[in-house]
Design a protein around this nucleic acid. Structure first.
Length: 680
DNA sequence: CAAGTAATTGTTTTT
DNA sequence: CAATTACTTG
């Protein structure tokens, strides 16, 4: 054990966590307290102590976090090559690996992962049989039904009770919905289809199995879990199933940063672990290496939760006080943000060091227009990914059919892209084609209408080629050939979409394992998208726009939090329950703790009811309820709606009549440099 | 039963 | 202003 580089620069508490023995360890790590460094140092220390890397399992919530941690652990330990043999990844990715490995034990001939879009497609496909298609009164969307399903399994709540509590408008159809969901389950099982939730459920089932469970448990001595406040019931069971007495278990989390309640997570899981494992030790990390004290003063005041961590800036007391900017409306807000971003840029702060955070992807609409007008380059995270667009999913469906001809959902999707095949035709044909009958292709052709037959024949031909091909490139090429003529006709804006397809096909053909490529694309779209999606400004300087969820774990020198008005933060969707409101409060906390040096919080007095700006009606909005007097006391208030005198932000709700753009622009005397020369 | 046209809706957050 | 959805017509 030579250098012990992993110990470099750790403070006492971090070192305690890193050097802790085998008894269960809970690390309560506030934002910016070196959580990743601590976790990776602990892994490096284990490896340096001679632990075989394959006996260490590191579970994270995003692929990015997993990659960052293994890389850093490798860099910090004496045997960097060993870190490559670590088991690391998201819960879902590891689950997929294990489920594929144990497919026979699980009674699965093949494993195809359904993305959330596929799930709604499948529900659409079968809902008619359950009397959920009539026109007339409004029926719950398949999306809502999928939500009910997911929440039920992830929280262990009976669907009926769940509906009563959280989806009351679905209650009149409770019988039909529960019937549909049962059918959904058997349908998936019969076809070897697994949705995201199934991956976790199957993993848990493996752990519960008398024969497989002990072997799985014996595979790892050390299990480390990041972001434990974001685990749901099933994930808790998996972790506990892996380490029943807690020995070798390390979890890191922060109850104030739990923001995945809608996915069945609860910060309670972190807190209750301490009760469930009496031997567990708690280490609290409160020294913050990220932000200035003034930023942390605001964060500490805003911090919810039980752990009551108080962050202290390692950087000392100096720093600029956060600013709360009251603005007139969304357009005004966009101008304020753009002005501030440019001003900082002029003072030498790269755009890369700045980010705009928002509650939902649509909140940046006005800002995006403003940025385009001013030629400020930006990249937006958290919106609809390329892999979720229809045409890309069409190609993925073809890939999946090449590997799993029983994939009814993919059949359905592909069939509806054909001319002369609509919903009804696709449904019957998908049933035939996903079956096991020897002559199912011929039968499908016989069933198809005269108009549909030629197109279908061509598709089936190519898919047969794909299914019998060995080399990945050949499979991909055949699928490409099957899909191309369909999509060219089907999409009116084909020219805009074709480039995406080319990139996807190229990237899939380049890989060695199509199965892995599809699983990656499904379980972690960003991972694959990053390889081939266009990233025009990758080498250049650009501003980051991100949802708060996607910004978790990241940091920037300057952070602009927009739409800090009631109805946006907290989202009006969340106001119906205490739990929902508490989660919004945690989101606010996550957002403000992303800032290293400057934090600007913008609160428009009028919010668009409708995300697109034109015939948008506006509704009056109060400042976010999270901008409490205590929070405001540690911030500088700026009111750009009435530039003459600062107005108490609590009482001014901006009731002024119509907005005069020129007036509001002149009210903010920030000089706007020509962007062409700045970025030319 | 498919496909085209008209009307009418919107919209959390993500593995 | 999309993108579903309802209603028409072939």
């Amino acid at each position: 054990m030579s250098e012990m580089e992993w110990s470099d620069g750790l403070d006492d508490e971090q070192r305690r966590a890193v050097e802790h023995g085998a008894t269960p360890l809970v690390v309560a790590a506030g934002a910016g307290t070196g959580k990743t460094r601590t976790l990776t140092a602990r892994v490096a220390r284990l490896l340096d102590a001679g632990v075989p890397p394959e006996r260490v399992l590191l579970l994270t919530f995003t692929r990015r976090a997993a990659a960052a941690m293994t890389t850093r652990a490798a860099a910090a330990c004496a045997r960097p090559e060993a870190a490559g043999r670590l088991w690391g990844g998201t819960f879902h990715a590891v689950a997929h690996r294990l489920v594929a490995e144990h497919a026979p034990h699980l009674g699965l001939a093949d494993v195809t992962v359904l993305d959330p879009g596929d799930v709604t497609d499948l529900l659409d496909l079968i809902r008619e049989e359950h009397g959920l298609t009539g026109t007339g009164r409004r029926l719950p969307t398949s999306q809502s039904i999928a939500d009910i399903y997911s929440r039920a399994v992830n929280t262990g709540t009976p669907a009926r009770r769940l509906m009563a509590e959280q989806f009351p408008w679905c209650l009149p159809h409770a019988d039909a919905i529960t019937g549909l969901l049962r059918d959904y389950g058997t349908r998936k099982r019969a076809r070897g289809l697994l949705d995201f939730d199934d991956l976790l459920l199957y993993w848990r089932a493996l752990l519960d199995d008398e024969r497989v469970g002990p072997r799985l448990r014996a595979r790892w001595d050390w299990v480390l879990v990041d972001e434990y406040q974001d685990v749901n019931r099933v994930q808790v069971d998996i972790v506990r199933g892996l380490r029943p007495d807690g020995d070798g278990l390390t979890v890191v989390g922060d109850d104030a940063q739990a923001v995945y309640g809608f996915r069945g997570a609860s910060p309670e899981h972190l807190l209750s672990l301490l009760d469930d494992l009496p031997k567990a030790s708690l280490v609290r990390l409160e020294r913050n290496f990220r932000s200035t004290q003034p930023v942390l003063d605001l964060a500490n005041v805003a911090r919810p939760g039980e752990l009551r961590l108080r962050l202290v800036a390692d950087r000392g007391a100096a720093g600029e006080r956060p600013r709360v900017i009251r603005c007139r409306d969304a357009d005004d807000e966009a101008r304020q943000v753009a002005d501030a971003v440019l001003a900082a840029h002029q003072e030498g702060l790269d755009l890369r060091e700045q980010a705009v955070l928002m509650r939902t992807g649509t909140h940046s609409h006005q800002l995006e227009i403003e940025l385009k007008v001013r030629s400020i380059p930006f990249v937006k995270y958290g919106g609809i990914g390329y892999l979720e667009t229809a045409h890309v999913r069409d190609v993925l469906a073809a890939f999946r059919l090449a590997l799993n001809p029983a994939d009814e959902v993919s059949w359905y999707r592909l069939l509806t892209r054909h001319r002369a095949i609509g919903k009804a035709g696709a449904r019957t044909l998908a049933g035939i084609l996903s079956g096991t009958d020897e002559g199912r292709y011929d039968e499908a052709l016989r069933t198809a209408s005269d108009k549909a037959r030629p197109g279908l024949a061509a598709t089936l031909d190519q898919l047969r080629t794909a299914q019998s091909a060995d080399a990945t490139a050949a499979v991909v090429e055949a699928c490409h050939a099957a899909v191309l003529p369909l999509l060219r006709v089907h999409y009116a804006d084909w020219s805009r979409r074709s480039a995406d397809i080319e990139r996807l096909v190229e990237s899939a053909a380049g890989g060695s394992d199509l199965r892995a490529f599809i699983a990656d694309a499904t379980i972690d779209p960003a991972n694959v998208a990053g390889d081939w999606a266009k990233q025009p400004y990758l080498d250049e300087d650009y501003l980051t726009l991100s949802t708060i969820h996607s910004a978790k774990g990241l940091e920037w020198s300057a952070v602009h939090l927009i739409r800090a008005s009631d109805g946006a933060i907290p989202s009006d969707m969340a106001l119906t329950s205490d739990a929902g409101l508490a989660e919004e409060e945690r989101l606010f906390y996550v957002a403000v703790t992303r800032a290293r040096d400057t934090l600007h919080v913008y609160s428009p007095g009028r919010l668009p009811t409708h995300p697109t700006s034109f015939h948008a009606r506006h509704v009056l909005a109060k400042p976010s309820r999270f901008l409490t007097p205590e929070v405001l006391a540690v911030a500088d208030r700026v009111d750009v709606t009435r530039p003459a005198a600062p107005v108490d932000i609590d009482t001014d709700i901006g009731i002024d009549s119509d907005i005069d753009c020129a007036a509001s622009r002149s009210a903010t005397p920030v000089t706007v440099p020509s962007m062409d020369e700045l970025f030319g």
